[in-house]
Amino acid sequence: MIPLSWYLTFAAALFSIGLFGALSRRNMVAILLGVELMLNAVNVNLVAFWRYGDVAQMAGQVFAIIVFAVAAAEVAVGLALVISVYRRHNTVIAEELDLMKW
């Protein structure tokens, strides 16, 4: 049997990789890829706690499904924003968007 710690360590590592991607990449699409990795890591944690807690309580899986829906909404709006910005300013580099910088 796999101890709970293995899943939690795996999820923490995946979250950190996603955090690095979201903080360090210049391309806006790549930043969103990092955010997706972080959301997946959280989902692994939720499902692991469901399995190692009371199995009859489905709260972990229900919450993970809500996270799926939120991730789908986030990525749809995020990529629409990227495409809209690309049309107007011809760039997908996050640093070059300085219209609101004073």
Partner: peptide, 17 residues
Amino acid sequence: QLNSNWWAGALMAVLTF
């Protein structure tokens, strides 16, 4: 592909883990 502050991002990720 990485911005000029990528080392800070890497440090944050390592500290988080």
